[in-house]
Amino acid sequence: MDFLREEQSKYPTLAGRYAALSELFGRKLYHELTVELLLFVKDDATSIGSNWIDLYQRFIVTFQDKINQLSLIRICGEIARRFQDPAQAVAFLESILTHLQTKKDKVTSTVNPHATEAVLMCRMYLGSFQLRLKQETQVKKLLAENKDVVESLVGADPLVHAAYYRVACEYYSAVGPADKFYKSALMFLAYSLYEDIKPAERFSLAINLSVAALTGENVFNFGEVLATPILSALKGTDKEWLSDLLHAFNRGDIDQFNIIVGNNRAQYNAQPALVNKEDYVKEILALMVLIFHRPSNERNIPFADIAFATRLPQNQVEWLVMRALSLGLIKGSIDQVESIVSVKWVQPRVLEKDQLGELQDRLAAWGTKVNDTLLYVEDQTPELFQ
């Protein structure tokens, strides 16, 4: 194809890549061509000037209806990033969306599910660029209109869900609240492969997710974040203390928390939301961890034990327990006369490996106790086992 030959001459370092595209196109191997195009646009080293944009306008457009439509949108989404002006990227994606919708309208019997998914993904790419243009109202409407569609998708490519939750992350990161960003980020990670997230995005997401976990309203289960690999993006950077802080919080280790904050006080104070919720969150979590460590038959906890675990004066323990009860984190009652809290239930948590090991030991001890009881009954009442 003339265009690809021109590009080989214009960009000698990419001549081999363009030659591969030309060969696959000439042989009409559209699946293989699609795979090669995806690899091409995912490699930032292949982007020189406007060559990606030219690639679509003079090459891809000639066969775009012959390739997988989801893959087409993924390719176009990457190409859109090369426009200097977000408004141009929006116009580009709108033209793609119009083409997809026109093609879909021609279907008179059954709608190709990939057409629906491609339209949805294209809208999400649009939403991302609309946020850069400060069009938060339009993006809010976009998310609301497509929420039920996304949740009702069955057997859809995970990339479709990931595209929706990525835009939700970007939106709630810009306008809040932190707890909605936190939930959207977890959903995005659930539908995404860590390797497919660009390093810069991993780092940014890890920071924002850490802060949202620590400051989000009614967010007390950090195990969900710790179960994902996203925090590894902070390792070896000046933000690694955020990951350490989350682990300390999840263990309810107030002493370790204070050490981490003390060593990173300037950066910690630069986040007003963290400072405002510091005492409240760590005390609630310390209480939940204390209850978790107690066997179910030892859940009558003296105020003194709670005061020690949470580093609170004993006269503030009742307020803390009442707060935990009102949030639905625990169920039970307070005996003011005896200064004892009776806990019947504590909110389930996602456990780390060490906590799972502790639970395993507890189950093993329970099994031993049951076996000892069985042996005792057999010994005391042999007539029952004859």
Rank of each mutant, 00 (worst) to 15 (best):
Q8D: 01
Y11Q: 06
A19V: 05
L21A: 05
E23S: 00
E23N: 01
F25I: 05
L29D: 13
L33S: 14
T34Q: 11
V35Y: 06
V35C: 06
L39A: 14
V41Y: 13
V41R: 14
D43H: 14
A45F: 10
S50V: 09
S50M: 04
D54K: 15
Y56M: 14
I67K: 10
I67Q: 11
N68W: 02
I73V: 15
I79P: 14
R82W: 07
A87H: 07
Q88C: 05
F92S: 06
L93T: 08
L93Y: 04
E94P: 01
T98W: 01
H99T: 12
L100W: 02
V107S: 07
T108I: 13
S109E: 14
T110E: 12
V111D: 12
V119W: 00
M124F: 14
L126R: 10
S128H: 06
Q135Y: 04
V149R: 07
A156G: 14
A156F: 14
A156K: 12
P158D: 10
H161T: 12
H161Q: 14
A162L: 07
Y165S: 06
V175T: 12
G176A: 06
L186E: 15
F188V: 10
F188M: 08
I197Q: 04
P199S: 01
A200V: 12
S204L: 11
L205K: 00
N208T: 04
N208M: 05
L209W: 11
A213W: 00
A213E: 09
T215L: 07
V225C: 15
K235L: 12
G236M: 05
D238H: 11
H247C: 09
A248G: 02
A248Y: 07
F249P: 00
F249M: 13
R251Q: 10
G262R: 10
N263A: 15
N263H: 11
R265V: 15
Q271A: 08
L274P: 08
V275P: 15
V275H: 11
K277N: 07
E283K: 15
V289N: 00
I291E: 04
P295G: 00
E298L: 03
R299A: 05
D305C: 02
I306H: 13
A309L: 06
L312Q: 05
P313T: 02
Q316F: 03
Q316V: 02
E318R: 15
L320Q: 12
V321D: 01
L325P: 10
G328C: 03
I330P: 04
V337A: 04
S339M: 13
V341L: 10
V343E: 04
P348K: 07
R349H: 11
R349D: 01
E352I: 08
D354H: 04
Q355I: 04
Q355T: 03
A364N: 08
A365I: 01
W366P: 05
V370D: 08
D372V: 01
L374E: 10
Q380R: 15
T381Y: 08
E383A: 09
L384A: 12
L384K: 06
